[in-house]
């Protein structure tokens, strides 16, 4: 839930999603759901000459389970807030 919330705060920011097949896609984060499926707008694929398959694709839906990394805009991530929220969530897990 925590990570899902983080992604929600980053909507309309530019991110780079790296897939498990080594494809890297940069675009504007439009939405995310509980499975961390991601919708990107205005996409470009890294090394487009080698990967022309998505030349005519302008926006896409990426299955959460095939994501390896997402590069986030550091200036839009409040690390102190994240750490506090993570500690709080860890506490809640303990009580269960």
């Amino acid at each position: 839930m925590l990570i899902f919330s983080v992604f929600k705060t980053l909507t309309d920011q530019q991110v780079t999603v790296e897939l498990k097949n080594d494809l890297s896609i940069t675009g504007v984060l439009k939405s995310v759901d509980q499975f961390l499926n991601i919708r990107l707008d205005n996409i470009t694929v890294l090394d487009e000459a080698r990967h022309p398959h998505m030349m005519a694709v302008k926006n896409c839906f990426i299955r959460g389970s095939v994501v390896r990394y997402v590069q986030l805009p550091a200036e839009h991530v409040d690390t102190q807030l994240l750490e506090d929220a993570t500690r709080r969530e860890a506490q809640n897990q303990m009580k269960r």
């Binding site: 897939l19 998505m54 005519a56 694709v57 896409c60 839906f61 990426i62 299955r63 095939v66």
Partner: peptide, 12 residues
């Protein structure tokens, strides 16, 4: 499915 992309038909 790993990815679904909307095609820009004129571009495509």
């Amino acid at each position: 499915i790993i990815l679904i992309g909307e095609l820009d038909e004129t571009l495509d």
